[in-house]
């Protein structure tokens, strides 16, 4: 069953929301996630300085910047893993800190996320599905197995997987719990074209299909133009420019986002 709505296709059987809810979400102007003026200092160095942005339902928001710009810290704060020194984060109208009920709706994959090397792919998915979904874990694991595209390798221990396979497993595990908010830190860093493309496809399909929200960090400007609805360029903990990728290109009259970044920051870090 497919519901056609302006520009978006929603596969209802994959969404955890009922159709009425979906329409409400699509028509609402309220952002799903609001990051308001967050500041985080480490030993006098301000890693994140007054960062604010809103992300709506069905939107992929990207945080782009060089290494050390404050992307990871921002995502960790959104995930609720660390507390900001100032500012706050609101998700679906609820301010942090969030209890297990809200955390159930959030999937976060850190940049250097590790794996339980001695579990098999299936065992990992089963563990996560049971912790997040309880009794309904069976279907979720089947779905994740399909999304991951890892096939029979899911029966092997994760320790033997390539980097790309590990990332796909983690992403499939994150998507199978039907998160409303997906936080991905450099999801394709260090992956080859095949794995990176597959990962992007998985993320986009999910966000569009389930009207979820994704906050993705990346230092790969090309990737950003492919998958982000809106971008914020961050440098030294400060957001220096924001907007849809195409608009930014137009505004600065350049070929790609890298040039926008160089223009905005003056080229230096």
């Amino acid at each position: 069953m497919e519901i056609v709505s302006p520009g978006r296709f929603i596969r209802i059987e994959e969404a955890i929301l009922d159709p009425g809810e979906v329409f409400k979400l699509l028509n609402s102007s309220e952002p799903l996630l609001s990051v308001v003026d967050i500041v985080k200092r480490f030993d006098g160095v301000t890693a994140v300085n007054r960062v604010s942005f809103d992300v709506g339902a069905g939107e992929v928001f990207c945080l782009v910047g060089p290494n050390g710009a404050g992307k990871t810290t921002t995502l960790r704060i959104i995930a609720g893993l660390i507390e900001p020194d100032e500012g706050y984060v609101v998700f679906e109208g609820r301010r942090q800190p969030w209890g297990p009920g809200v955390r159930r709706l959030i999937a976060y994959i850190p940049e250097d996320a590790g794996v339980y090397r001695n579990l098999t792919g299936f065992e990992y998915l089963e563990t996560m599905a049971r912790l997040y979904l309880g009794e309904m874990w069976g279907d979720a694991v089947r779905r994740a197995a399909e999304i991951s595209g890892l096939g029979v390798r899911l029966r092997d221990r994760i320790g033997g997987y390539s980097k790309g396979m590990k990332r796909r497993l983690l992403l499939a595990g994150a998507l199978m719990i039907n998160p409303r908010l997906l936080i991905l830190d450099e999801p394709t860093a260090g992956l080859d074209v095949t794995h990176a493309t597959a990962m992007r496809r998985m993320i986009l399909d999910y966000v569009r299909g389930s009207v979820a929200t994704a906050v993705v960090s990346s230092h790969n400007m090309l990737e950003v133009s492919y998958m982000c609805d809106r971008v914020s360029l961050i440098n030294r903990g400060v957001i220096v420019e924001s907007g849809p990728p195409k608009e930014l290109l137009k505004r600065y009259r350049v070929e790609n986002l890298e040039e926008v970044f160089v223009r905005v920051t003056g080229g230096g870090l």
Binding site: A79, L81, P100, Y108, A113, G114, V115, Y116, L131
Partner: peptide, 15 residues
């Protein structure tokens, strides 16, 4: 900590 799985653990919807 060594296998960098702590964040996954901390994100779990449990107290």
């Amino acid at each position: 900590r060594e296998s960098r799985t702590l964040e996954l653990l901390l994100m779990l919807p449990i107290s």
